[in-house]
Design a protein around this nucleic acid. Sequence first.
DNA 1: CTGTTAGCGCTTTCAA
DNA 2: TTGAAAGCGCTAACAG
Lengths: 348, 348
Amino acid sequence: MANERVTVIDIAKAAGVSKSTVSLVLQGSPLVNEGTRTKVNAVMRDLGYVYNRGAANLRQSSAKSKIIGVVVNDLTNSFFAELAVGVDLVVQDAGFVQFLANTSESLDRQTEVIASMREHGISGLVVSPARGSRAIDFKALVSAGMPVVAVVRPVAGAKVSSLISDNHTGMFAAVEHLARLGHTRIAFFGGFEDTAIFQERLAGYRDGIAASGLVYDEGLVFACAPSRAEGAKAVVRAMAAVDQPTGGVCFNDAVAFGVYDGLRARRLEPGVDFAIVGFDDVIEAGTSVPALTTIAVDPQGMGRRAAQLLLKQINAGKAEAEAVVTPVRLVVRESCGVNKLKPGRRSA
Amino acid sequence: MANERVTVIDIAKAAGVSKSTVSLVLQGSPLVNEGTRTKVNAVMRDLGYVYNRGAANLRQSSAKSKIIGVVVNDLTNSFFAELAVGVDLVVQDAGFVQFLANTSESLDRQTEVIASMREHGISGLVVSPARGSRAIDFKALVSAGMPVVAVVRPVAGAKVSSLISDNHTGMFAAVEHLARLGHTRIAFFGGFEDTAIFQERLAGYRDGIAASGLVYDEGLVFACAPSRAEGAKAVVRAMAAVDQPTGGVCFNDAVAFGVYDGLRARRLEPGVDFAIVGFDDVIEAGTSVPALTTIAVDPQGMGRRAAQLLLKQINAGKAEAEAVVTPVRLVVRESCGVNKLKPGRRSA
DNA sequence: CTGTTAGCGCTTTCAA
DNA sequence: TTGAAAGCGCTAACAG
């Protein structure tokens, strides 16, 4: 029940040296001779001394708290749990400790926890923004010079670094995959045309079409709100056309699920009558659709990258916003849409 | 790019009051008149003031850091992710923020992160100990008067609170379940006889047997190391007996998986030829066996309970170790062992 | 190489 | 009700 806090001064007294010598030892300074160092260390062990980082931070520039904040929108979703593990991994190795908070998609919660973290003196923040986050939500942080990296969901207009999926490569690979299976009419579903992400993904689609020797047809691009409901409507529209597509790539997972729904409503079997590839933005939690190929990202790897990016900024001292892209891979399931393919071009 | 830290003194100056008045406002003290309060608050907003908890803690008893530590052995396992969410929920509501660290079952990592958390002044710790944790690993913490609650895995001999599954009730329910399905010879597999947990679970088994009107037969208790390999051997032993059991309850999930393996090796179909109920200790990560009924705990609920328990201790000011039990529920899958049941007593 | 002396930003007596 | 002063545990100049 040793309750009184033991401080540098206690151990200085016990070791017969001065406060600052102890401090030097604490910081592993080479200016203290070996004998003193060992003695001091021994005393620290004996008295059960624990370093008070709060006090140290107070005295120092206060910029080096060795705490980084991690806020995710849904820790229940294993994607984000893995992401947190990835962050933790590199952050621990760098001698930092991480605050982890879960917002459950609540903007208020997010504001609260970020404020709280600031009060505790975090030296950087990795955040997977709650839905509906705006640049203004991070305004205070960035103008205070806090390094911030947004993952998974970029925040339009915010001067923070962001780490998002490789939109172009992902879509390109998806289209190539479908083309290789024999599809010649591949649609693009969902997304708001005025967003940067949409443009990137669409470009990947176009380039994939071209690279596969197919012709780009604007009539196969069905832009719509990136929601499940709109996705369902989009595919219905697509299937009403004279020259129906036999498969499609979707702006994100929500749209992909919508396309799935829309096909079922038309009595078509998703993945058999029509191939679907969804871009995995992890927007829908806990939803799982079989027979759906996705463009996926490795969450833990993304976490590691995010942490590295953040540490780089922290060490650089300045918060230069930077947009980085995380690799994606195609996770192929049974969704090749064989029924609609011309005989002879079907895949095994 | 407003970089200079703004402090109480700045806002005092700007508001035309003194440092301590500002401090009073910060703490919501009723000793400051309304006009002053609003003015001060306005100035704080204008200057973008952020409260420095580190400094505050330093001055205060230092016991009220508003940080609690959470260390789990495997955040990749969704059980622990959910647990962390549960903790976060109540901890956030109480105005705390949580440090979250993942040890990946590494004792060294665990020691490191706990030390780090102490240095940062956590006021309590929720820990799911890494495998092989001993009382000594928490000695320093408890003797420093730090409230600690161990979850999922109790640490023998450590003077920390623990929150574990309801061993007796769980086993009782499992046995009752099997008996209701018509089983009359129900085995008990796995566990070291000299541990408290084993005794509790065995007692639940015995009482369940009695409550179901069956007779307890010592020959049906197959104690062994709680590992997958030993579980496999145990069931082989059991099936070699003249009067074979038709189902069994297992000490934990590892043993249950072992039993599964053992049955397969004997060309028996688990869940059809033999009913298995496993006690879900979440010892095996990422393993999933179908057709296996389990005694499960709600991870998020457990997290909430753990946090509440911890907060209670923090508020009480003393670290009185307390053992609490978390409810369990039976998650029934297809493991009824129909093939071996007498006709007429089979379940639907 | 070691000791002295100031503070970091805040809270907290104690007076005014 | 508000102000002045002291000090939490530590580090950062400077002297010795």
